[in-house]
Design a protein around this nucleic acid. Structure first.
Lengths: 120, 120
DNA sequence: TGCAGTGTAATATCTAACTATGACACTATG
DNA sequence: CATAGTGTCATAGTTAGATATTACACTGCA
């Protein structure tokens, strides 16, 4: 897993898990990999994954059961969907629009790039 | 000036200045506000602005003259333009496309939001 | 020359994020 | 009951970013 500098690693891991939930890779009620498995898999410290897990619980996306593991919460998929949609439209997209204005990039250009993107 | 958590403040200040250069607010060869002016204006420490200035010099966007101030470098506008365009197409846009896929957002929806954006 | 306004440098403190490591409590299973 | 695999807690150390403060070197100008 490759990380970006801008965003905290534990948040990127949480995002990664959320995408797994959206895609259906992780079903509601299903157990997620253990902190230690995750840590070695993405080559990160256990504490960092623990922080991701804490974050997911705080957002009602996951529930931990001591001695058992971390499980996808019921209603998690819808919760994640709403959260990400909200963030997308209120934060990411406006920023993209701003940059398009500043850089003089047209919607046609975006359309063209989208074709390239979906073909690769 | 409002800052985001995700990105370092000194980089956001640098971005702000770069946008001023792109928009023509700051012409090439023109002097930028002093570190102390900037610091009090955006309510940030002098050291943070200094870091922004260092960054801009490192990117060949500005040149400092001791005792005089920081000046927009010749060719800065084109340099900033290329840098931001590159970043936009290789990093921001692909991320947006990924999220569109994950969240099931169509290009029509984006078009519609763009209209809202440009009208406000 | 003196002074105010420049960038710059040095030092110290604080916080968030990440790492390293060890330990503890709980659960299922043999 | 013992053990392996869970989450969790505690401690300590590192780094980047931001702050606070003081001081220095340079420049233009009165």
């Amino acid at each position: 897993m490759e990380f970006r500098n801008q965003k905290a690693i534990y948040l990127q891991i949480a995002d990664y898990i959320c995408e797994g939930i959206l895609s259906g890779e992780y079903q509601e009620g299903e157990r997620l990999p253990s902190v230690r498995d995750f840590a070695s898999q993405v080559e990160v410290n256990v504490n960092t994954v623990t922080r991701s897990f804490d974050y997911l619980q705080q957002k009602n996306v996951a529930v931990s059961r001591r001695g058992l593991g971390l499980f996808v919460a019921t209603g998690a998929r819808e919760a994640v969907y709403e959260m990400h949609r909200e963030e997308f439209f209120s934060e990411h997209l406006p920023e993209i629009f701003r940059q398009m204005q500043t850089l003089g990039i047209s919607m046609d250009e975006i359309q063209s790039k989208l074709k390239d993107f979906t073909n690769n």
